[in-house]
Design a protein around this nucleic acid. Structure first.
Lengths: 188, 188
DNA sequence: GTCTATAGCCTGATAGAC
DNA sequence: GTCTATCAGGCTATAGAC
């Protein structure tokens, strides 16, 4: 029953994400994480040196994924393609990893932890530039972008929407986002 | 320099709201509240028996105000008037008390505290019924309502929108909300 | 209404054995 | 990788003087 290397670390991060989603980042202690895994706090400290390090490791995959979407969007040839790539990419990440998205962008305790460290703000800026294009500066567009980002994070966390499949949620979010941003659906 | 009765309680709740907005509910201790007021923890405990009681008292005004908006909306004669009353009322509360709105609906630690107690869920249900009307059941409308509620809370908290005046934020939020919900602007 | 002092618990974190 | 044992310090909350 020996587990492969790195398995313990992965199990720990999965368990931590579930606890973050349920109790908030500030409301999750090392003891809760250890109990969830059936081990002691010291075992947790063997994998990570500090509590902050765990929180970073939980959200890093999502930030890397956002960066990849931003890369793809910026490489697209036309403004319409950049918008489309950025929007569908962000929605896709949000839908397929709802808990992580909600924890990443909806928790003030997390915001305090990753203040500068992880470059979330940079990716958010790149993506909103790709989506808003020339209108990035005007107030209505800025409000629209914030509304969309915060709303999508909430949609991922809301128990009232937990009954929706990934396909349904993705479809509705894309429709609503395009309406909010006055985007036409792509020809394809 | 004697202060009027109830003044100490009001000052405490004001200070607590500021701290909640800055550090999150879970990240705000009784000691921080006491320090902010320049008194000791025991003085805080003279006003409120528990930490939870403080949190409830901070958000109760917002919940009462939401209930009043729901009352007004349900009393309106037509479906269009109900939608309009509910939407403008909610936006108004959000805009004029941004910090409280963000703390109330954006903090998982607060959500855990007020789980059943304060009837926030009831008011949210009434208001979304008034706004969505007959389409309250269909998935796209439910996603739209969640997107809007979560997005408005985020808009109130986002430092990037702090430069907008109340008038500007109100105007943009109403425009975007109507677009999202496919509502016509009122004739008035 | 405010203070000092304290109880008792839980926290993040460390040391060292296996 | 996991354990037991332990630490100092912060937390909520209480008691009792002024």
């Amino acid at each position: 029953m020996r587990r492969p290397p790195g398995e313990a670390r992965r199990r720990l991060l999965d368990a931590t994400l579930r606890l973050y989603a349920a109790h908030g980042v500030g409301g999750t202690s090392l003891r809760m994480i250890a109990d969830e895994l059936g081990v002691t706090k010291a075992a947790v400290y063997h994998q990570f040196a500090t509590k902050e390090e765990i929180a970073l490791a939980v959200v890093q995959p999502a930030i890397d994924a956002l960066a990849a979407v931003a890369d793809a969007a910026e490489a697209a040839p036309t403004r319409a393609a950049r918008r489309e790539t950025a929007l569908t990419g962000v929605v896709e990440l949000m839908v397929t990893d709802r808990e992580r998205a909600a924890v990443l962008s909806g928790d003030p305790a997390m915001a305090a932890l990753i203040g500068g460290h992880a470059g979330l703000a940079t990716q958010a800026r790149r993506l909103s530039a790709a989506i808003l294009g020339a209108s990035a500066g005007d107030p209505e567009s800025r409000v629209a972008a914030t509304l969309l980002a915060g709303g999508m994070a909430t949609a991922g966390r809301d128990p009232g929407l937990a009954d929706l499949t990934d396909d349904e949620l993705r479809t509705h979010l894309l429709t609503l986002a395009r309406r909010l941003l006055r985007m036409r659906a792509p020809h394809a």
